[in-house]
Design a protein around this nucleic acid. Sequence first.
DNA 1: CGAACGTTTGAGATGACTCAAGCGTTGTGG
DNA 2: CCACAACGCTTGAGTCATCTCAAACGTTCG
Lengths: 247, 247
Amino acid sequence: MLTERFLRNRTGIQLTDAERRQLEAAIVDVRTIEARRTVIKEGEEVNVSTLLLEGFMARYIDDRKGLRQLVAIQVPGEFVDLHAYPMKRLDHNVGTLTPCRIAIVPHAAISALIEDNVPFARKLWFSTLIDAAMHRAWIFRIGRLDAVGRVAHFLSEMNCRLEAVELSDGQDFTLEITQADLAEACGLTSVHVNRVIRQLREMELCVFRASRVRILDRAGLERRGNFDPHYLYLDGQTNPASKESAS
Amino acid sequence: MLTERFLRNRTGIQLTDAERRQLEAAIVDVRTIEARRTVIKEGEEVNVSTLLLEGFMARYIDDRKGLRQLVAIQVPGEFVDLHAYPMKRLDHNVGTLTPCRIAIVPHAAISALIEDNVPFARKLWFSTLIDAAMHRAWIFRIGRLDAVGRVAHFLSEMNCRLEAVELSDGQDFTLEITQADLAEACGLTSVHVNRVIRQLREMELCVFRASRVRILDRAGLERRGNFDPHYLYLDGQTNPASKESAS
DNA sequence: CGAACGTTTGAGATGACTCAAGCGTTGTGG
DNA sequence: CCACAACGCTTGAGTCATCTCAAACGTTCG
């Protein structure tokens, strides 16, 4: 089922079977896209939204010199641009980081789905607000943490999000992004990210090599990154680590 | 009218007169709050949302040492926590920066409003997504800009947002926040913010003194901050400055 | 085998931070 | 009405995290 991962393990907003079937039926197309392609440009009018099935996509804002700041990374099971449904026009670019498989849902179909189903509308609304919550965590990460903390926080977030859709076992997952991508996400340079990754390895917190993240000490990594997963609104939180006392 | 400023000058989502009246009727209480009070603590369950009528409020996340990162500043006319309507529980704190006047809208009343009015629901949804768009701009600001750029971007944003609700004439407005608040918003220290403000004055871009911002060169300030107001989804954009070429 | 790309390392530069002190304004109570 | 406390702003000097520039290395793929 294509929509299987959507809102998987999110607290209190599971789709009903009927809703999931309806959403599934609203998909008009499934496509694959190569890595590193721009999919939507800022300012473009859109009338469909994109559910990411496989791969990683990014949302980013370019500065005047063309340097990009990632503002979100989407993982399988997430809508990349459901916020385009109410907004129609995006304030940022969307592109693939890896080869991706996506499902297309026309906005007209979404309108039909929620027309007579307010609870469903609220769930879709909620899902766009989880993105907003992640944005806030990113602001915190970049604004308050040092380089090691930022990367630790980022990897902790990815671990939790991927765990929710069964793409991480809680300490080991595939993350096919480059150190330069990580730098663009964390507001650092790729050179410095490289040194930070070495530090995390030397601290025996985690290893990131060959597109693979291996977390050696989850509690330690989360503590170093000041990470608390509550903003992800996940079910069955299994991360007591984050509640521990200050360093 | 209490809701007068809500969604004022936002492109394509003006409330109808009937909707505005209904929203107005949904207000059960109007309160004033002192400056520097915490209003909602992270994790708290809420079943009302807060429309800010006067003053400035902030949303913030504390790190383990208690240092705060502002993730949003709300100005009059904005809902501070409408996202609590679908989410019920917030992932951040909410507090006042200045003395404030607020209107309380119970979630039950919101449900009643949108039950049989999908377009209205979409407008409320949209308004929470403008917050998300601002979050993204904040990520960009903190992640990609240097200190002078961050403050320039921040002040440009405030100018536009306040202009939309007639609290700025486009170059001159009251901003009752301290340099320390500005630092917490921009991921800087208050000492450095102070030096940055001096630089902006010396560059003859803008003056921030005694809770008053006076923009001397709007185009220049926006250029220095890499600011483009399109993410605010405002009507009648009067800021061609942002479209100019690279420095 | 060479080109392209991502990673790694080194050396030096710099923007922002920390610590510390002084200044100015406001409000309050003796 | 003055004195002082509280708070926010300003400035200086020294430190440090991260950046920049540059080069080398490893891997993949055609």
